[in-house]
Nucleic acid binder design. Structure first.
Lengths: 196, 196
DNA sequence: TTCTTTTTGACACGCAATGCCATTTGTCGT
DNA sequence: ACGACAAATGGCATTGCGTGTCAAAAAGAA
C-alpha cells in the first residue's frame, strides 16, 4: 500500500470517528458536513467524495456487516443447504460485531436518533434482502429455492437480525448478539420442501 | 365535512395524482417539487405542507396500508392469538390493495425506480415493525409475547409481506396478493411456546 | 355585515449534493 | 534528482429540498 492509499485510509477513518463523535454530541441535523470536514481539516467537498451522503458517514458500518454476510454466504453455500448457510452467515456477522460492541452500540444509537439515517440503513438492507433472495433462487445453483420461497427465507432471516439488534439495544439482559440471535431463531421454523 | 376540509382533500388528491403522473413520466429526481405544485396550481410551499418530503407524495400509499394493518390488528387481538391476528391483518391489507392493483403496481414501480423513495418506505415499515412488536409485548395484554419473540414475530410477518410484494411485482404468475401471501406463509412456522 | 381562525403564497435562508476547474501532492520513468 | 504524469484536493458556482416567518386570502362564526 503506497503513501497515497495510506493517507486515504487515515482520512476516511478520521472522518468516520469525527462524524460519529459530533453527531453523538450535537445530533445529526445539527451537525453539518462542513463541521465534520472542519474537524478533520478537510474541505466539505472532499468529505462528499469519501461518502456519497452524510448518512453514509454513520451507515458505512452497515456496509461492513453486509460484506461479511455476502462473503460467508457465498462460501457456505458450497457445502450447506441454503437456510442453514444463511442463518450461519447472519450469526457470523453478529459475532464479529459483538467484538466491537461498544462502537456498534454507539452506531445503532446514532441510527435510531434520526429518521434519514435509519431510512438509508433500511434501504440498504432491503437491497441486500433482494440480492440474497436472487442468489438463493438462481437457476445455476443446486437446491435452488423457488422465487417466493427465496424472498421469504431471505427476508425472514434479516427479520431475525433486526429482532436481535432491537432486543440488544433495549438490552436489559446482558446477552451477546449471537445468543439473542439463537433465541430469535427458535421462534421460526422453515419449511422449504425438503430443500432445507 | 365542511367546505374547508373538502377542498383540502381535493388538493391533496390532485397533488398525489399529479405527482405520480409526473414521476412516472420524467422520473423522480427529474421531477421537482415546483413542477408538481405547478401542475396543480399551488405554491411549492403548500405542497410541503401537505407532504413532509417529496418522497411522501408517493409513499403516502404505504401509510394507508399501515393504517389498515394497525386497525385490523387492534380489533383482532381482542379475540385471536397474536400470531394469527397479525397474519390475518397483513392478509387483509393485501386484499384491499389487490382491488386497486393497477394503482398499486404503479406505486411500487415508482418506489423501486429510486433509492430515496424506497429508503423512506423501508424506514416507515421499520417503525411499524417496532410499533407492532411493542403491542405484542405490552404487559397489559393477555398472551403477551416476550421481547425477542415479539420483535421476531413482527419482523417476520412484514418479511412475508415484502416477499409477497416482490414476487407479485416480478409477477410471472398471475396470482393475487393474498394468494401469494398464503404461499409465503407456508414457508415459516412460528413456535411461540403455546402462546400461539 | 364584521370578527376570528385557518389556509395559502411569497420571500428569505440553510444546507446537502453535484459539476467544473485550477492547484497541490504523490508516483513513476529517465 | 528532475520532470512528466496521474490522482487527490480545494474552491467556486449551482440546483433543489426543506423550514421559518409573515402578510394576504379564504372559510366559518357571531
Amino acid at each position: 500500500m503506497g503513501l497515497r492509499e495510506d493517507k486515504k485510509d487515515r482520512t476516511r477513518t478520521q472522518l468516520l470517528e469525527a462524524g460519529l463523535d459530533l453527531i453523538h454530541k450535537r445530533g445529526f441535523e445539527a451537525t453539518t458536513v462542513a463541521d465534520i470536514a472542519a474537524a478533520v481539516g478537510v474541505s466539505p467537498r472532499t468529505l462528499l467524495r469519501y461518502f456519497p451522503t452524510k448518512e453514509d458517514v454513520i451507515v458505512s458500518w452497515v456496509q461492513d456487516g453486509m460484506t461479511i454476510i455476502r462473503e460467508e454466504l457465498e462460501e457456505r453455500l458450497k457445502s450447506e443447504p441454503p437456510v442453514v448457510a444463511l442463518l450461519a452467515s447472519a450469526r457470523a456477522m453478529l459475532a464479529v460485531f459483538e467484538e466491537k460492541s461498544r462502537f456498534f452500540l454507539a452506531i445503532e444509537t446514532a441510527i435510531r436518533s434520526n429518521r434519514s439515517i435509519s431510512a438509508r440503513k433500511e434501504q440498504m438492507i432491503a437491497e441486500l434482502i433482494d440480492e440474497v433472495a436472487r442468489i438463493l433462487a438462481s437457476p445455476d445453483r443446486p437446491c435452488r429455492l423457488p422465487g417466493v420461497v427465496a424472498y421469504t427465507v431471505s427476508g425472514t432471516v434479516f427479520a431475525l437480525i433486526r429482532a436481535t439488534i432491537s432486543s440488544w439495544v433495549e438490552g436489559r439482559e446482558g446477552m451477546s448478539l449471537p445468543d439473542i440471535f439463537d433465541q430469535a431463531a427458535t421462534v421460526v421454523h422453515f419449511e422449504t420442501n425438503g430443500t432445507e
